[in-house]
Each structure stands twice: as structure tokens, then as C-alpha cells.
Design a protein around this nucleic acid. Structure first.
Lengths: 187, 187
DNA sequence: CCCAGAGAGTTCGGTGATTGAACTGTCGGC
DNA sequence: GCCGACAGTTCAATCACCGAACTCTCTGGG
């Protein structure tokens, strides 16, 4: 009842989860947050969703305690995952693995998750296939897999940065280090 | 583009998954299917969603290969999970665990998943805390947890059956065994 | 044969969410 | 002061969802 779209009367914990992250775009926003996307404009550029919807989702996620809005080094705020948001990683990983398994190209997954300390890929259950240990989110490296299409003329810098190896939870772009005068100077 | 609600242009496998199971109600339908809910009326009674939406979701899931519609012993058809649908279990489990962790009552989870062969509860990663082995879906027993509210005057038999211990993927109700003349005879 | 009722949808008007495009406001740098 | 980047807000059109009522088919009983 209190939530925007409720599944009232469900005794099931899944229904509670879906009230928070079951709306359109929400889980993609969370996924981008795992990959280090942090600013309004970065989310908007990568997801190409209506800005009003993005405003709504970021507000909802912040109020739910999944994201936290905090001041950046620059003038704008950033949205970063809280521990509660980071706890969504197993769900995001499982759904990503399912999509790769059933909707990937024949050549393999689009992205491979690796254990940053030994570079071995992760198993489906989130353990490292090298050392066998469960891997914490901050130690996961995302690398392009064989199924990842070559970068199109998809101009936005976020999509391009996501196609390069990067560590989860680390800022993907750092706008404070590339001020306006240096950005966009390459035609 | 071809799918009902597309996240076009996403290179991310999660977006593919969300096109299939990201719509409202869809994942709850899949969850019920794991618990052995199989018939139109059972889904409708438990989820209390508009019947037109249920029709649409069952059709979509069937076309996507997540469910299969097959004749029952009786006159009506049943919808059962395919291997592709069963592959969604890690995602359903992860989201259920998240909901229990952050939206449960203080006393604990609503439901406990156990390994049917040794009755030990499952860890968050899906392994059995008793024998340590990964547990296949058909060997999971769902038992009421401390956080499960007592059955309300929630009349529908599906909700009541879900509150009792049951094994995943086994039919929850068997309407062919309780013909009309014996059903509903208790005021 | 006729009827009643269950089950599985379909139809339909009202309501709310989503979309894309245009607009506003604000700050920093030139 | 002016300009452009950024982060939203506003708005009309479209789409999805809701709940209730309706249809259609099959089954069992009399």
C-alpha cells in the first residue's frame, strides 16, 4: 500500500523485493551503479530512458536505501550503492547469467566476471574458479567477453567505458579529472 | 523491438533478461510455478491479479519458452516450468533472500529452503549447509520460517498450501483428485 | 435433454505510468 | 555578463494496468 506499486497481501519475500526493484528500468539502473555509473547524466546517456523516469527511479531507490546521494568532488551529486544495494549483487549476477545463457550469441557471454586478485573467471554461483573462494563485489573485474559486439557509433562515453575492463563499484568516469575544456575536444 | 517492452540498444545481458521477466507480476508467476502452482485459476487465486494480465503473462512466458502449456489429467491445461524456466531459480532465490534480509520481520525469514535429502537449510549461495553440495531445484523443500504470518482468513487454498512444507516443482494441488462433489463441501 | 456451475479466458471503461520532446534553473568558466 | 553543460521539470499522447462484468465450453446431475 505505501509503495508506488504494491503487491499487497503477498506473504512472499520476493513480492517485497519486487516492490522496490521490480519497476521498469530500476534493475538496469542498479546494474549500472555496480559498474561505477554514478551521475544523472551518465545513467541517462547509457540507458536512454526518459529523464523524468530516471529522476523518479533515482529518488525511489534513494528513499529505499539502495542508493545514496552524496556530493561529488565537483558541483553535482553522485548516486552510489549502499550496502543494501550491494546486497543485490547475487540477483543481478544471476539474471545476467540467465540472459547470457539463453539470449547470448553463440560465441559466449558478453561480459566475463573475474576475480581481480587472480584473474580467474567466476562460476555461476559467484565463487572464483581459480581459488574457489566466494568473491566480494569490490574484487570483481568485468572484462569483455566473446559475445560483446564491437562498439558501434554509440557515441556516449559511458557505453564505451563499460566495454573496457573495469572493477565493480569503482567510478567509471571521473568528470572532475576531465574538465569541460578537455572533454569533447576530439571530433 | 520485437519484444513487448524492449530495452533496445543495451549490450547488457541483464537487459535481455528484463525484457522477458521484467514485467509486473511475471517473476511472481515464475515463483509460484516453482512452488507447484500450475493452473490458471491457482495463479489467479493466489496472486489476485487481473485475469487479463495473467492471460497475457502466461502467453508471453510460454512463447518465451519459460513455461510450457500441456494437457493435465483433467480437462484443463497446466503451465509448467521448462528447463529454461528452472534456470531462473538462482535469480528467484537471490531476490527472495534480499527481500527477507531487508524487509523481513525481526524473527527471521518467511520461508526456509532445505535440502530434501538431509533437511539442512540452504546457504545464500544455494548450497546445502549440511552436506555442502549444490542442491538441484527438485531437491529443495520449502518450509515455513519464523517470519511467516499465521494464515489469515485468506480463503484461497493456494495460499494455504504454500504455507505448508512442500517440495519445489511438485504439483501443489491436484484438482483431479478432489472433484467438485468433494471440494467446497465444508462451509 | 435441460440446467447449473466451474473454469478459463475476453471485453471494456476508467485510471495511472511511460514516453519523447521541449522547457527551466543553476553554476562555472571565459 | 554570457554561454554551455548539467540536472532536472512540464506536458500531451500513448500505453499498460485495473476491476468488474461478460462469454464460452465442458461436466455432472436430475
Amino acid at each position: 500500500m505505501p509503495l508506488p506499486r504494491d503487491y499487497s497481501g503477498q506473504t512472499c519475500a520476493l513480492a517485497r523485493s519486487m516492490e522496490i526493484i521490480g519497476e521498469r528500468w530500476t534493475l538496469l539502473i542498479v546494474r549500472d551503479a555496480f559498474c561505477g555509473v554514478r551521475r544523472f547524466g551518465e545513467f541517462a546517456a547509457h540507458l536512454r530512458l526518459p529523464r523524468a523516469v530516471l529522476t523518479d527511479r533515482l529518488t525511489t531507490l534513494t528513499e529505499a536505501g539502495v542508493l545514496e546521494r552524496k556530493p561529488d568532488t565537483g558541483r553535482r551529486d553522485v548516486y552510489v550503492l549502499t550496502p543494501k544495494g550491494i546486497a543485490l549483487w547475487p540477483a543481478v549476477r544471476a539474471l545476467t547469467a540467465w540472459g547470457d545463457a539463453f539470449y547470448g550469441v553463440g560465441s559466449g557471454p558478453r561480459r566475463v566476471f573475474r576475480h581481480a586478485t587472480d584473474d580467474a573467471p567466476l562460476a555461476d554461483d559467484g565463487r572464483c574458479t581459480g581459488c574457489g573462494a566466494p568473491v566480494v563485489v569490490g574484487d570483481i573485474l568485468v572484462t569483455p567477453g566473446p559475445g560483446l559486439a564491437a562498439a558501434a557509433e554509440d557515441d556516449d562515453p559511458v557505453t564505451r567505458a563499460l566495454a573496457r575492463p573495469h572493477r565493480l563499484l569503482q567510478p567509471l568516469l571521473d568528470p572532475s579529472r576531465t574538465p569541460r575544456s578537455e572533454r569533447g575536444s576530439h571530433p
